[in-house]
Amino acid sequence: MSQTKDDRKGTIANVNCRYYVKINGVEKAVFSEVSGLQMETELFEYAEGGNNEFIHRLPGLTKVGNVTLKRGVSVDNELFKWYMRIAQGIMDLRTVTITMYATTGKQVVRWELLRAFPCKWSGPQMAANGDAVALETIELAHMGVLAVD
């Protein structure tokens, strides 16, 4: 991840291209893309009795989104094997760590996906005349996100 200076505010913004993903049980997992790292809190609204001009808005349940990882197909096929264990009913829950780095190599932020498991796997698109890298995609459901220092 490189840094760019925002001249309007005089701040430094971290660019999103330097990161590392670690999955317990998967030794060689270099991913070209990570997406879906998000949380959303539902709103609970209610009107106070006798006050028709105001609606209270309070936080409700917080939901986490699935995280999608993409990488070039590798010979170990470990992500597909993990998905197949889940599909066969074996609850193989793992911690997934996503770490973002500055250009200096210093860690900027780290997130942990708690009790993650694959809920979707997509293999590469193949074409006889194609020259693109064969990518596999795995979508992970998880029980929550922690920001770790």
Rank of each mutant, 00 (worst) to 15 (best):
A141S: 12
F54L: 11
Y19V: 05
L79Y: 01
K63W: 02
E53L: 07
N24E: 14
N24C: 07
E78L: 14
A128E: 06
V96W: 02
A87W: 12
A29E: 12
N66P: 00
K70P: 01
Y83Q: 07
Q38P: 00
K28R: 15
D131Q: 11
T62Q: 04
N16E: 13
W82M: 08
S122F: 01
S122L: 06
S74T: 15
L140I: 03
G65F: 01
A47H: 09
H56R: 10
D149C: 11
H56T: 07
E48Y: 01
N51E: 11
W111A: 00
T11D: 15
Q3L: 09
Q125E: 10
V75I: 13
L43F: 09
L61T: 12
E136Q: 04
L79R: 06
A47Q: 14
Q38S: 05
C17K: 14
A13W: 13
L43E: 13
M1A: 13
G36W: 03
L114S: 03
Y83N: 08
C119T: 14
A29F: 15
R110M: 10
L61F: 10
M1G: 15
P124F: 00
T137V: 07
V145S: 00
M143Y: 07
D76F: 05
P124G: 00
D7Q: 13
V148A: 01
M100S: 13
M39A: 07
M39D: 03
S74G: 11
H56F: 06
G65A: 05
D6C: 13
E78M: 13
M91P: 08
G50W: 03
E78N: 12
L58E: 10
T62V: 05
R85Q: 14
G144P: 05
K22Y: 13
S35A: 04
E112K: 00
T68N: 11
Y101C: 09
I90E: 13
V75P: 07
E139G: 06
H56P: 06
H56L: 06
K81I: 14
M143A: 08
V108Q: 07
Y83S: 08
V145T: 04
Q88H: 11
G89M: 01
L61Y: 10
R110V: 05
N14I: 11
E40R: 01
E136L: 03
T99E: 12
W111H: 05
A128P: 03
V34Q: 05
Y83E: 04
G50L: 03
K81A: 15
T137F: 03
D6Q: 15
V67A: 02
I138N: 04
T68D: 08
L93H: 05
Y19Q: 09
F31E: 08
D7M: 14
G105F: 09
G25H: 00
K9P: 10
N52H: 12
M91L: 10
V21I: 08
L146I: 02
M100H: 14
K28Y: 15
K22V: 12
L69Y: 03
G144N: 00
K63M: 05
T95S: 04
K120F: 09
V73T: 01
N66R: 01
R71T: 06
K5E: 06
I12T: 14
S2P: 08
Q107L: 11
W82V: 07
Q3N: 09
K63L: 08
A141W: 08
C119R: 12
I55N: 13
N24P: 04
T41V: 10
W121V: 04
T99Q: 10
R71Y: 07
L114Q: 08
W111Q: 05
F31S: 06
S35F: 01
